[in-house]
Simulated assay, not measured.
Amino acid sequence: MVTRDRRVQWVAGSAVALALLFAGVATVASARGGGKGTDRVAASAPRTPAVDSADAGFARDMAVHHQQAVEMSFLVRDRTGDEEVRRLAYDIANTQANQRGMMLGWLDLWELPKATAQEPMAWMAGGHEGHDMDGIAGMDGTAGPGSRYRDHDGSLMPGMATRTELDRLRAASGRKAEVLYLQLMTDHHKGGIAMARGCARLCTVKVEKRLAQGMVEAQQSELDVMAGMLTARGAKPRS
Protein backbone atom coordinates (compact mmCIF):
# COMPACT_ATOMS: atom_id res chain seq x y z
CA MET A 1 0.00 0.00 0.00
CA VAL A 2 2.82 2.41 0.86
CA THR A 3 4.61 1.57 -2.38
CA ARG A 4 1.45 2.17 -4.42
CA ASP A 5 0.75 5.49 -2.72
CA ARG A 6 4.33 6.65 -3.34
CA ARG A 7 4.06 5.62 -6.98
CA VAL A 8 0.82 7.60 -7.45
CA GLN A 9 2.37 10.60 -5.74
CA TRP A 10 5.52 10.32 -7.87
CA VAL A 11 3.57 10.25 -11.14
CA ALA A 12 1.36 13.16 -10.11
CA GLY A 13 4.27 15.12 -8.70
CA SER A 14 6.37 14.64 -11.81
CA ALA A 15 3.45 15.75 -13.95
CA VAL A 16 3.11 18.96 -11.94
CA ALA A 17 6.79 19.77 -12.43
CA LEU A 18 6.63 19.18 -16.17
CA ALA A 19 3.35 21.04 -16.45
CA LEU A 20 4.77 24.17 -14.85
CA LEU A 21 7.26 24.33 -17.71
CA PHE A 22 4.73 23.54 -20.46
CA ALA A 23 2.03 25.76 -18.99
CA GLY A 24 4.49 28.63 -18.76
CA VAL A 25 5.43 28.26 -22.41
CA ALA A 26 1.77 28.04 -23.41
CA THR A 27 0.87 31.11 -21.37
CA VAL A 28 3.68 33.17 -22.88
CA ALA A 29 2.73 32.03 -26.38
CA SER A 30 -0.89 32.92 -25.73
CA ALA A 31 0.08 36.30 -24.37
CA ARG A 32 2.07 37.17 -27.48
CA GLY A 33 -0.98 36.82 -29.66
CA GLY A 34 1.10 37.08 -32.82
CA GLY A 35 2.10 40.70 -32.14
CA LYS A 36 5.50 42.38 -32.23
CA GLY A 37 7.18 44.50 -29.58
CA THR A 38 6.87 44.58 -25.83
CA ASP A 39 3.95 47.04 -25.83
CA ARG A 40 1.83 44.80 -28.02
CA VAL A 41 2.75 41.74 -25.95
CA ALA A 42 1.65 43.48 -22.76
CA ALA A 43 -1.58 44.70 -24.36
CA SER A 44 -2.53 41.25 -25.62
CA ALA A 45 -1.61 39.37 -22.44
CA PRO A 46 -4.64 37.49 -21.01
CA ARG A 47 -6.00 38.63 -17.68
CA THR A 48 -5.50 36.28 -14.73
CA PRO A 49 -8.71 34.30 -14.12
CA ALA A 50 -10.63 35.12 -10.95
CA VAL A 51 -10.64 32.60 -8.11
CA ASP A 52 -14.34 31.83 -8.75
CA SER A 53 -14.07 31.75 -12.55
CA ALA A 54 -14.86 28.75 -14.71
CA ASP A 55 -11.17 28.56 -15.65
CA ALA A 56 -10.01 28.24 -12.05
CA GLY A 57 -12.95 26.10 -10.97
CA PHE A 58 -12.46 23.60 -13.76
CA ALA A 59 -8.72 23.37 -13.09
CA ARG A 60 -9.31 22.70 -9.39
CA ASP A 61 -12.19 20.25 -9.80
CA MET A 62 -10.77 18.29 -12.72
CA ALA A 63 -7.44 17.92 -10.91
CA VAL A 64 -9.31 16.16 -8.10
CA HIS A 65 -11.37 14.12 -10.57
CA HIS A 66 -8.25 13.05 -12.46
CA GLN A 67 -6.37 12.06 -9.32
CA GLN A 68 -8.96 9.40 -8.57
CA ALA A 69 -8.68 8.01 -12.11
CA VAL A 70 -4.93 7.69 -11.60
CA GLU A 71 -5.48 5.90 -8.30
CA MET A 72 -8.01 3.45 -9.75
CA SER A 73 -5.74 2.71 -12.69
CA PHE A 74 -2.82 1.79 -10.43
CA LEU A 75 -5.14 -0.33 -8.31
CA VAL A 76 -6.27 -2.48 -11.23
CA ARG A 77 -2.75 -2.82 -12.66
CA ASP A 78 -1.75 -4.50 -9.40
CA ARG A 79 -4.76 -6.82 -9.43
CA THR A 80 -4.83 -8.35 -12.91
CA GLY A 81 -2.39 -9.89 -15.32
CA ASP A 82 -4.58 -9.07 -18.34
CA GLU A 83 -2.38 -7.04 -20.68
CA GLU A 84 -5.30 -5.30 -22.41
CA VAL A 85 -6.65 -3.90 -19.14
CA ARG A 86 -3.17 -3.10 -17.80
CA ARG A 87 -2.32 -1.21 -21.00
CA LEU A 88 -5.55 0.81 -20.83
CA ALA A 89 -4.95 1.55 -17.14
CA TYR A 90 -1.41 2.73 -17.87
CA ASP A 91 -2.61 5.02 -20.68
CA ILE A 92 -5.33 6.55 -18.51
CA ALA A 93 -3.00 7.01 -15.52
CA ASN A 94 -0.26 8.59 -17.64
CA THR A 95 -2.61 10.89 -19.57
CA GLN A 96 -4.62 12.08 -16.59
CA ALA A 97 -1.60 12.55 -14.33
CA ASN A 98 -0.04 14.81 -16.95
CA GLN A 99 -3.26 16.74 -17.52
CA ARG A 100 -3.66 17.12 -13.77
CA GLY A 101 -0.15 18.54 -13.60
CA MET A 102 -0.98 21.06 -16.31
CA MET A 103 -4.07 22.28 -14.45
CA LEU A 104 -2.26 22.58 -11.12
CA GLY A 105 0.55 24.36 -12.95
CA TRP A 106 -1.89 26.92 -14.32
CA LEU A 107 -3.27 27.57 -10.84
CA ASP A 108 0.28 28.19 -9.66
CA LEU A 109 0.97 30.56 -12.53
CA TRP A 110 -2.28 32.40 -11.83
CA GLU A 111 -1.35 32.49 -8.12
CA LEU A 112 -4.72 30.97 -7.24
CA PRO A 113 -5.42 28.40 -4.48
CA LYS A 114 -5.76 24.73 -5.37
CA ALA A 115 -8.62 24.37 -2.88
CA THR A 116 -11.36 26.82 -1.89
CA ALA A 117 -14.60 26.85 0.08
CA GLN A 118 -16.49 26.93 -3.22
CA GLU A 119 -18.60 23.83 -3.81
CA PRO A 120 -17.35 21.46 -6.53
CA MET A 121 -18.74 22.40 -9.95
CA ALA A 122 -20.19 25.71 -8.70
CA TRP A 123 -18.32 27.28 -11.63
CA MET A 124 -20.82 25.63 -13.99
CA ALA A 125 -23.76 27.55 -12.47
CA GLY A 126 -25.54 29.76 -14.95
CA GLY A 127 -24.03 27.96 -17.92
CA HIS A 128 -26.87 25.54 -18.63
CA GLU A 129 -25.11 22.96 -16.51
CA GLY A 130 -28.33 20.94 -16.33
CA HIS A 131 -27.93 20.14 -20.02
CA ASP A 132 -24.41 18.84 -19.47
CA MET A 133 -25.59 16.74 -16.53
CA ASP A 134 -28.44 15.05 -18.39
CA GLY A 135 -26.09 12.37 -19.71
CA ILE A 136 -25.16 11.30 -16.20
CA ALA A 137 -28.42 12.05 -14.39
CA GLY A 138 -29.28 9.36 -11.88
CA MET A 139 -25.64 8.39 -11.34
CA ASP A 140 -24.52 8.20 -7.69
CA GLY A 141 -26.16 11.11 -5.94
CA THR A 142 -28.18 12.75 -8.71
CA ALA A 143 -31.95 12.78 -8.62
CA GLY A 144 -32.63 13.28 -12.30
CA PRO A 145 -31.92 15.43 -15.39
CA GLY A 146 -30.72 18.89 -14.45
CA SER A 147 -30.52 18.07 -10.75
CA ARG A 148 -27.69 19.21 -8.50
CA TYR A 149 -25.10 16.58 -7.64
CA ARG A 150 -24.91 15.59 -3.99
CA ASP A 151 -21.50 14.50 -2.75
CA HIS A 152 -21.58 11.28 -0.73
CA ASP A 153 -19.20 8.64 0.63
CA GLY A 154 -16.18 10.41 -0.82
CA SER A 155 -17.70 10.92 -4.28
CA LEU A 156 -17.38 14.68 -4.67
CA MET A 157 -18.38 15.06 -8.32
CA PRO A 158 -20.35 13.12 -10.97
CA GLY A 159 -18.69 9.89 -11.98
CA MET A 160 -16.32 9.72 -9.02
CA ALA A 161 -16.21 6.38 -7.24
CA THR A 162 -17.22 6.21 -3.59
CA ARG A 163 -14.95 5.03 -0.80
CA THR A 164 -16.97 1.81 -0.67
CA GLU A 165 -16.42 1.20 -4.40
CA LEU A 166 -12.69 1.87 -4.12
CA ASP A 167 -12.51 -0.64 -1.26
CA ARG A 168 -14.27 -3.20 -3.46
CA LEU A 169 -11.71 -2.60 -6.20
CA ARG A 170 -8.85 -3.02 -3.73
CA ALA A 171 -10.32 -6.33 -2.60
CA ALA A 172 -10.98 -7.68 -6.10
CA SER A 173 -8.63 -9.54 -8.42
CA GLY A 174 -8.59 -11.08 -11.88
CA ARG A 175 -11.70 -10.77 -14.04
CA LYS A 176 -13.76 -9.32 -11.17
CA ALA A 177 -11.26 -6.47 -10.77
CA GLU A 178 -11.19 -5.90 -14.52
CA VAL A 179 -14.97 -5.61 -14.83
CA LEU A 180 -15.32 -3.38 -11.77
CA TYR A 181 -12.52 -1.10 -12.97
CA LEU A 182 -14.06 -0.79 -16.44
CA GLN A 183 -17.47 -0.01 -14.95
CA LEU A 184 -16.11 2.54 -12.48
CA MET A 185 -13.94 4.18 -15.12
CA THR A 186 -16.87 4.33 -17.54
CA ASP A 187 -18.87 6.28 -14.95
CA HIS A 188 -15.78 8.39 -14.21
CA HIS A 189 -15.33 9.31 -17.88
CA LYS A 190 -19.00 10.23 -18.27
CA GLY A 191 -18.73 12.62 -15.35
CA GLY A 192 -15.44 14.01 -16.65
CA ILE A 193 -16.85 14.58 -20.13
CA ALA A 194 -19.75 16.62 -18.71
CA MET A 195 -17.31 18.81 -16.79
CA ALA A 196 -14.97 19.20 -19.76
CA ARG A 197 -17.86 20.24 -22.00
CA GLY A 198 -18.70 22.88 -19.40
CA CYS A 199 -15.18 24.29 -19.57
CA ALA A 200 -15.07 24.13 -23.36
CA ARG A 201 -18.13 26.39 -23.31
CA LEU A 202 -17.47 28.61 -20.26
CA CYS A 203 -13.69 28.89 -19.83
CA THR A 204 -11.95 31.94 -21.32
CA VAL A 205 -8.29 30.82 -21.40
CA LYS A 206 -7.84 29.39 -24.90
CA VAL A 207 -5.26 26.74 -24.01
CA GLU A 208 -7.54 25.45 -21.24
CA LYS A 209 -10.57 25.37 -23.56
CA ARG A 210 -8.52 23.32 -26.04
CA LEU A 211 -7.46 20.93 -23.30
CA ALA A 212 -11.09 20.50 -22.20
CA GLN A 213 -12.27 19.78 -25.74
CA GLY A 214 -9.43 17.29 -26.15
CA MET A 215 -10.59 15.54 -22.95
CA VAL A 216 -14.10 15.21 -24.36
CA GLU A 217 -12.86 13.61 -27.56
CA ALA A 218 -10.28 11.31 -25.96
CA GLN A 219 -12.50 10.10 -23.14
CA GLN A 220 -15.41 9.47 -25.49
CA SER A 221 -13.10 7.28 -27.55
CA GLU A 222 -12.04 5.42 -24.42
CA LEU A 223 -15.69 4.91 -23.46
CA ASP A 224 -16.19 3.03 -26.74
CA VAL A 225 -13.11 0.91 -26.05
CA MET A 226 -14.23 0.09 -22.52
CA ALA A 227 -17.72 -0.86 -23.69
CA GLY A 228 -16.15 -3.42 -26.03
CA MET A 229 -13.90 -4.73 -23.27
CA LEU A 230 -16.88 -5.16 -20.94
CA THR A 231 -18.81 -7.01 -23.63
CA ALA A 232 -15.87 -9.36 -24.14
CA ARG A 233 -16.03 -10.15 -20.42
CA GLY A 234 -19.78 -10.79 -20.40
CA ALA A 235 -20.55 -7.53 -18.63
CA LYS A 236 -21.86 -4.06 -19.43
CA PRO A 237 -21.66 -0.48 -18.09
CA ARG A 238 -23.65 0.20 -14.93
CA SER A 239 -25.50 3.16 -16.44
Results as ranks from 00 to 15, higher is better:
residue 1 M to S: 15
residue 5 D to W: 02
residue 7 R to F: 00
residue 8 V to H: 00
residue 9 Q to A: 04
residue 10 W to H: 00
residue 13 G to E: 06
residue 14 S to F: 08
residue 19 A to M: 04
residue 27 T to G: 10
residue 27 T to H: 11
residue 32 R to T: 03
residue 33 G to S: 07
residue 35 G to L: 05
residue 37 G to Q: 06
residue 39 D to P: 03
residue 40 R to L: 14
residue 46 P to H: 08
residue 46 P to W: 07
residue 47 R to F: 10
residue 56 A to L: 07
residue 61 D to F: 02
residue 64 V to P: 03
residue 64 V to H: 05
residue 66 H to F: 01
residue 68 Q to A: 00
residue 70 V to Y: 01
residue 74 F to V: 00
residue 74 F to W: 00
residue 83 E to R: 15
residue 83 E to T: 15
residue 88 L to G: 10
residue 91 D to N: 14
residue 94 N to F: 10
residue 98 N to P: 00
residue 102 M to P: 01
residue 103 M to L: 15
residue 105 G to I: 05
residue 106 W to R: 11
residue 112 L to V: 05
residue 112 L to F: 05
residue 114 K to D: 08
residue 114 K to S: 06
residue 117 A to R: 11
residue 120 P to F: 01
residue 122 A to S: 15
residue 123 W to Y: 14
residue 123 W to N: 13
residue 124 M to V: 07
residue 126 G to N: 13
residue 126 G to H: 12
residue 126 G to W: 12
residue 129 E to M: 02
residue 135 G to H: 07
residue 141 G to E: 11
residue 141 G to A: 08
residue 144 G to L: 13
residue 145 P to F: 07
residue 146 G to W: 08
residue 147 S to M: 14
residue 147 S to F: 13
residue 150 R to D: 14
residue 151 D to F: 14
residue 155 S to E: 13
residue 155 S to Y: 06
residue 156 L to H: 13
residue 158 P to L: 11
residue 161 A to T: 15
residue 161 A to H: 14
residue 164 T to N: 13
residue 165 E to G: 06
residue 167 D to W: 04
residue 169 L to E: 07
residue 172 A to W: 01
residue 172 A to I: 02
residue 172 A to K: 02
residue 175 R to Q: 03
residue 177 A to M: 02
residue 180 L to A: 10
residue 183 Q to G: 09
residue 186 T to Q: 06
residue 187 D to S: 03
residue 190 K to L: 02
residue 191 G to Q: 06
residue 194 A to N: 04
residue 200 A to H: 08
residue 201 R to W: 05
residue 201 R to A: 13
residue 201 R to Y: 06
residue 203 C to T: 01
residue 205 V to Y: 06
residue 206 K to G: 12
residue 208 E to T: 12
residue 208 E to P: 06
residue 209 K to L: 13
residue 212 A to I: 06
residue 212 A to M: 08
residue 215 M to H: 06
residue 215 M to C: 09
residue 215 M to D: 10
residue 216 V to G: 08
residue 219 Q to S: 04
residue 223 L to M: 15
residue 225 V to K: 15
residue 225 V to P: 11
residue 226 M to A: 07
residue 228 G to F: 06
residue 231 T to E: 08
residue 235 A to R: 11
residue 236 K to L: 06
residue 237 P to N: 09
residue 239 S to N: 14
residue 239 S to F: 12
